[in-house]
Design a binder for these strands. Structure first.
Lengths: 229, 229
DNA sequence: GACAAGCAGATTGTCGACAATCTAACAAGA
DNA sequence: TCTTGTTAGATTGTCGACAATCTGCTTGTC
């Protein structure tokens, strides 16, 4: 019997679709930080009743990208410089741990997938699709978490990723510059294929620091921004 | 004008109360792993309509202690040995990080709070209130996370704590033994007051390992248990 | 007896309407 | 003028009913 991997059938509830739609809108920056989500308006736009919409929003609140105040409304989280610092410093620690766990698990499929995702980043970069570039870059880094074989760690990282993606998207939107070079991840990929785990961990830390500095500059600009709406 | 700290007014939505009720039922083991939550039955028991109940369940799904299958139902998560191992190994990493961040932030209030929470554990132990003992012990360990001044880290730990509390409760329920000694946290507290950060970190790792071994034994027994309901 | 089709019951997903609460504008009084 | 009470409008929270889906049983056919 031929070995065949079926992809999971899509969640065919309105709720799941709404979650995906809203998450995408938030993570790409179409919904701005601090913005209020009017249930009636959104439900009418989506041609959906408020029940599944509200359930979807509850999920995103727990996911950490929305915040809810009873009888006042649900808002996109505000982003402060400290939030970005906090997320990144935790990310460093998790990366180091994930590399340690994933290291002995690396196999042929790992390396293939590493190349595939790296290629996806480069392609998005060439196409100057910044949104997709951010997505693919995070997916590239997510590989070590998938291979770490620790479900709690993976979940934790996915939560963190939501925020990182949002931060990056806001950053890109704000400066509105051409995307970074195509080969920023070359060294990372090479090290993940190599035999020096410590070197890979060290690079991960430093690599993160690089992007971080840029993001932080953007974050500082945010600090004095008052929450409107 | 006298300086007065008001505690935040409680969330007076049914949803919030339901979340608290359900969470407590799950974390104390009253709702068993794998068990299905019948919406109609629960909503009738709570004298509440299904809408807020469903929203509450959505929150707990995202919190990681419930799992939902569309059109099939919502279930308490199953606990496997691997889940416990994963949670603990991540906890070790986070503890080390939290101690590092919190270390320079320790002040008078920190030490006071440390004693207060330690006392709470000992009191629960004397009262042989195992549920409360687990709660207070986790709160004691949570102090370093609160002092670490990293909101993402704190959130992450709180999510993790939900599971740890559940695992401990199940463990206690299963063996049904008198609670451990009253002074298990003496060394931890002493080290957190001391000046040797490395020693504190090392102890945290080892202390965790101690409880872990016991829990793991319980977890192994779970492995062959089929999911009923 | 084995198996597929179809039906009935139970359960989850979704809807539209009503109740509770908040906000902001306005009026009244010190 | 400032403060306080009131009220109207908008928005969120909750409810009960209906639609979609699943599960297990029954029935009919071979």
């Amino acid at each position: 019997m031929a070995k065949l991997d079926f992809s999971p059938i899509p969640d065919t509830t309105r709720r799941a679709e709404i979650v995906a739609l809203l998450r995408r809108a938030i993570l790409t920056g179409q919904l701005e930080p601090g913005q209020k989500l009017n249930e009636l308006r959104i439900s009418e736009q989506m041609r959906v009743s408020r029940a599944p919409l509200r359930e979807a929003m509850r999920e995103l609140v727990q996911e950490g990208i929305l915040t809810s105040i009873p009888y006042a409304g649900t808002f996109v989280i505000d982003v402060t410089a400290k939030d970005i610092i906090d997320a990144y410093s935790l990310n460093k620690v998790l990366d180091e741990f994930a590399i340690e766990l994933a290291w002995p698990q690396r196999d042929r499929r790992f390396f293939d997938e590493l190349d595939r995702r790296h290629e996806a980043v480069k392609q998005a970069t060439r196409a100057i699709d910044t949104t997709r570039q951010i997505e693919t870059a995070l997916q590239l880094h997510g590989l070590i978490y998938e291979w770490a074989d620790n479900s709690v760690l993976l979940e934790t990282w996915q939560r963190l990723t939501s925020r990182l993606q949002m931060y990056f998207a806001l950053h890109q939107r704000a400066r509105n510059e051409p995307v970074p070079a195509e080969n920023v991840h070359e060294t990372y990929v090479a090290l993940m294929k190599g035999s020096e785990m410590r070197a890979a961990q060290r690079h991960a830390r430093e690599h993160i620091d690089l992007d971080f500095e840029e993001l932080l500059g953007y974050a500082r600009g945010l600090e004095k921004r008052a929450t409107k709406n």
